[in-house]
């Protein structure tokens, strides 16, 4: 009984704090100064039509580097924590065959899903989308493949190789920005092109391709680790 009263008191204090800090603030009618600067000078300085992409890749590029590092750390901790048996020994799981419809349909739909994912992160600077969304869609395609065929052996070395190469290329492109242009992850190392076409916005498509491949392979690695873990000998 006392515990319930205590929990209610904690919730009431939280509710009071939250309502006080956000409360009934009206939505503004004008953008504030930082957003005005991004919206007015963004197309000239960066060349991307999608303002959110411009903010993520160039204006706040260091935050993207931090996020990529955190994702890499998470994927490697999960891979270390869940043992998948000794190397070279693949215990075939005793599952029954999935239905015919699922197997046939997955063979048709999985390439389409991969194609949509790659399209989303190549066109990140023109339409809503980008590296993170495209990577998540590619990982969903891999999940469909694993669902239709649970005994399928996913090669962990391929996933680690793709992830490492994409991560190193992302950091190398950032350092190239320091050497050739004015700062880390500056995208004026390639030409700007015409505003609104595919080959515009400098190095943003190349950077986003590497980010998309890295996020997609990391999420696929997490899912396949969770599926293939066996009980280690305690």
């Amino acid at each position: 009984m006392l515990k319930k009263v205590f929990v209610l008191a904690v919730l009431a204090v939280f509710a009071l704090l939250l309502f006080r800090s956000f409360g009934w603030t009206d939505a503004g009618t004008e953008l504030n100064e930082v957003a005005t600067r991004y919206a007015e000078d963004g197309p000239q300085e960066v060349g991307a039509a999608n303002l959110v992409t411009a903010v993520i890749v160039t204006y706040r590029g260091l935050d993207t580097l931090g996020e990529v590092t955190i994702l890499f750390l998470t994927a490697s901790i999960i891979g270390f924590f869940l043992a998948t048996g000794r190397k070279g020994e693949h215990v075939p799981p005793t599952v029954r065959n999935t239905s015919e419809i699922l197997q046939t349909a997955s063979r048709v739909i999985t390439p389409v899903i991969f194609l949509i994912g790659i399209y989303v992160f190549i066109n990140g600077h023109l339409t809503p989308g980008g590296g993170f969304q495209g990577g998540a869609i590619v990982a969903s395609g891999l999940v469909l493949m694993l669902l239709a065929n649970p005994g399928r052996k996913v090669s962990h070395s391929l996933i680690s190789a793709v992830e490492s190469i994409s991560g190193i290329s992302f950091v190398l492109l950032g350092i190239l920005g320091i050497i050739l242009a004015s700062g880390f992850l500056d995208n004026s190392i390639l030409g700007y092109g015409r505003f609104g076409t595919l080959f515009s916005a400098g190095a943003i498509p190349v950077i986003y391709i590497f980010v998309g491949l890295k996020v997609g392979s990391e999420l696929s690695g997490i899912v396949s680790n969770l599926q293939q873990t066996t009980k280690e000998d305690i």
Binding site: V52, P128, G130, F132, A136
Partner: peptide, 12 residues
């Protein structure tokens, strides 16, 4: 952008 990310990651 946020809607696409939340649908793919949170709900999938």
């Amino acid at each position: 952008d946020v809607a696409m990310t939340e649908a793919a990651i949170g709900s999938g």
